[in-house]
Each structure stands twice: as C-alpha cells, then as structure tokens.
Design a protein around this nucleic acid. Structure first.
Lengths: 232, 232
DNA sequence: GTGTTCGCTTGATAAATGTCAATAATTTGA
DNA sequence: TCAAATTATTGACATTTATCAAGCGAACAC
C-alpha cells in the first residue's frame, strides 16, 4: 500500500482517532486497487466482505428491483461506503459501480469488526459516521416524499451552487441520466424540468449551469436546512 | 420511575450490555411521562434534548415542508427514537406525535452522551442500533423509488401478514390516511389501490384484511429481502 | 476523418397520481 | 343515544410523470 493512501485514510474522521497500532493492523490487511469505469464493485444481497474507501475517482451506489434501477448516492474521495453492512455483518443493501477510473482501499470486514472490538475511539467514530449517514438518508427520503421533481431539481442546483463556492455559474459533475435517477425521475422528465426552470432564471447548457436570479429560484425551491444542509 | 419501566428499558438491546452502575445513573436522570393522543412530542428543527423511549402506546414520526406533511415511521413499544440526533447533538430531522395515549421514558441527551462516553458496551450497542436504523431507511428509500403505489401497498400487506403470524386474515393497525402518507400517496389513491388489489385476492373491510391467494398477491408484489425484511 | 455509439432532447401519448367535491361510514363526545 | 366531527370512499377532472419513438449532437473507436 502506498504511503499516500494511508495518509488520506488516516485523515478521515472515521480513522483519525484510532490507536496507531490498531490502525496499522487494520491497514496491513487491506489493499489498494484501481478499477476502470463501469465496474460493479459490489452487488446488493452479497455478504459484505470489505469496507470500501474511495481515494480517487467516483462510485455510484444504486439499487435494483424487478428490473428497475435507481441511483441512491454518489461517493467521492475520500469517503467510505457500506459501513453499516460491514459492522452488522449483513448483506449489502445497495450495489456499487465505478463511474470513472477509480482507486479504492478495501479493508476486510472481519478486520474492521476486529478493530471495532478493540479500539474504543474507532467504535465511537463509527457511531458518528453512521449517525451522519442515517441523517443523510432521512433527508433524502424527505426530499423525495415531500417535493415534486421540479422542486427536487431546483434544490439540487442550489445545493450544488453552494458546494461549488456560490458563484452564479458552475458545472454539473454528474451525467444527466444519473442525476435524473438520483432525483427519482426519468431523463426525459429531467430535460423538461430543466426547461421549466428557465423561467426562474436557470440556464443549463450541457453541463454548464448558470443561475441568474438566485432569489427567484429559491422562491420555488424553498430550501430547508433540515433537508438540504448536509451538515445540519 | 416505576420498576417495570426499568426492566423493559433494560431489556432493549441498546441498554442490555451496559454496566449496571452506568445504567442506573442514566435512568436516574430520566423520567416517565404519559401523554394523551395527538400530542406533538418533538418538532423537527428543535435541538435534541431527550432520547425518547416508547413503553406503551404508539408514536408517529413525520416530516413537513412547505405546508406538506409526510409520515416517516411508526414507533411501537418498546423502542427508542431520534437516537442519531441525540448522539450527534444535532437538531431533530423529524417531528413526533402520539397516535394514542402513550407512555414514554425521556432520557436527557446530555446523560445519554455521557453514558456513551464512559460505557463501551453502550457505545457498541448504539452502533448496532444506528446501523439497523440506517438500513431501515435505505430499504424505505428503495421501496419508494423503485415501486409504484400499488406495489408498495401489496408489499406492505405481505409484510404485515408475516408480522401478524402469517394467517390469511389480520387487522391493519394503522389508520388508512396514515398508511397512505407512509406509503407516499393520498388517501384517495390508497382507496383505489385497495380496490385494485381485489383482483389479486385481497379484501379489506374497514381495518380487516383478508388475503385469499398469497401467491397471486406475491406475483404482483415481488417482495424482496433487501427491501421488505426488517432483519435482513 | 468517419462511422458508430451513446446520451440528450423533443413531441405525442399513456399511465399514475393528485385535487376537488360530494357522500357514506365511522368514531367521538356530550 | 344522538349530534358532530372525523375518516373513508367515489366520481370527475387536472396535473404530474412515464413511455415510446424519432432525431440531434457530442464522444469514442477505428
């Protein structure tokens, strides 16, 4: 394992408080791997053999049922995913695939659970991480149940604008068909929603977004800390 | 606090492994209260002052936005709710109200966090509980994003049937308007969905449900462990 | 470069779901 | 027990969202 990985991983809140010895033990059992785009890393229903950490690239989490598929989340560096399955030793609830060429650290679930058992700081960090994830999914659920697709798109754009520094222009960092799936609609419907937002001062050209009248957009979107703020 | 409460609470997986002394300290700070129906116990956005435990009755968790409201979950005895907010010392993401006359144990969040800091078994139990909650919300999200309203209803009935022992007849233990909100539809739409299920051998009369052909219903519902099994 | 593929957009149409209004059934409370 | 309030159902209709089909355009492979 290259040094840079350990540094990056060590910096994650999840691992920052671990005893050095436990951290090293945990890392010794893990390995780094680079995957091309569109590789299915894990499949829902499979036993959770590894805790995954994305250090480069991006990964999408998605779920399937009855020949339908929906995107649940995008994971960007540096973060872990499927921690809950690893800790509970339960099957994955979501599948994961690389969106682009990506580098991952894989830590055997057994080792993670062992570290969890011996290292109290790690156990506490896991709590923080799980609570965070839980709240993120609850927000997501509220977003989907309480808002129409146009409102979801409007709020997504406002969130992205903030994430990108708040300027009037920024780039969508996601394919539109994935965005549509994430927002719980079809690509066709997203196209139409984008057109509908023109009257609120939003111009989207390819992946380039321009928000000319944030107030106007916000009057439609009505963003809420309890849905849209990832840290709240 | 009456003894029965302590016994019930002590039996919860969350508290079962605690040091007796820590458990007693935690309980000393808490108190028991009985509420009439329709009392709003907590309001989303408020700071999380107490960890709540339902020991009798039932409580619904719901969320609001822009004058709309949706039911997120029903909490029945004996279980806790809003653990994540308590642990993270973050504002509630959901509101809670009693559905019927209910008895609750309220534990000050400060005390819970203190117990979490000193009792490693408790900290580990919190992990288990949070992971469970996280997975429950993920399943819920999949249910809503991947299924139509009729499919959600069909699967709900199958889950309830199993929960009630698997017999052909059982009672809905929830008002239909609440069920509609939980399933992400209007009461009118639920009424029509119920009628639509007649052709799959489902008869619902008031709160009485009869499933005459489980196979037929299952062929529509296509239940999945990864969405419908609470323990998977 | 050029052909092909894939993603995006648009229009037409269909299906799902929501809204409104009226009525029926049920529960609640005096 | 009865009146009032709430909940459930139904019909007519509107809106939202999905589906299908076609065409466009950028990215990619050879």
């Amino acid at each position: 394992m290259r040094t840079i990985d350990i540094t990056e991983v060590r910096g994650l809140p999840l691992f920052a408080g671990m005893e050095q010895e436990n951290f090293e033990t945990l890392m010794r059992g893990g390995y780094v791997q680079t995957f091309p785009p569109q590789v299915e890393l894990i499949t829902e229903g499979d036993p959770s053999d590894f805790l995954h950490i994305v250090t480069e690239g991006s990964v999408e989490l998605f779920a399937s049922w009855n020949n339908r598929e929906t995107m649940m989340a995008t994971v960007r560096p540096v973060s872990t995913f499927i921690l809950a399955a690893t800790i509970k030793d339960a099957p994955y609830l979501m599948s994961a695939r690389t969106i682009e060429k990506s580098r991952l650290v894989l830590l055997p679930s057994l080792d993670v659970r062992a570290a969890f058992d011996v290292d109290n700081n790690f156990a506490r960090a896991v709590v923080g991480e799980l609570a965070q994830c839980y709240r993120a999914v609850v927000k997501n659920s509220k977003n989907i149940k309480l808002r129409t697709s146009i409102e979801r798109l409007a709020n997504y754009l406002i969130r992205q604008q903030k994430y990108n520094g708040g300027g009037a222009e920024f780039e969508l960092r996601i394919e539109k068909r994935r965005l549509a799936s994430y927002l719980g609609m079809t690509p066709e419907n997203l196209s139409r929603a984008i057109k509908a937002l023109r009257s609120y001062g939003v111009t989207i050209n390819g992946s380039h977004v321009e928000i000319s009248d944030p107030q106007d957009l916000a009057s439609l979107a009505k963003p809420s800390l309890l849905i849209d703020d990832p840290h709240h």
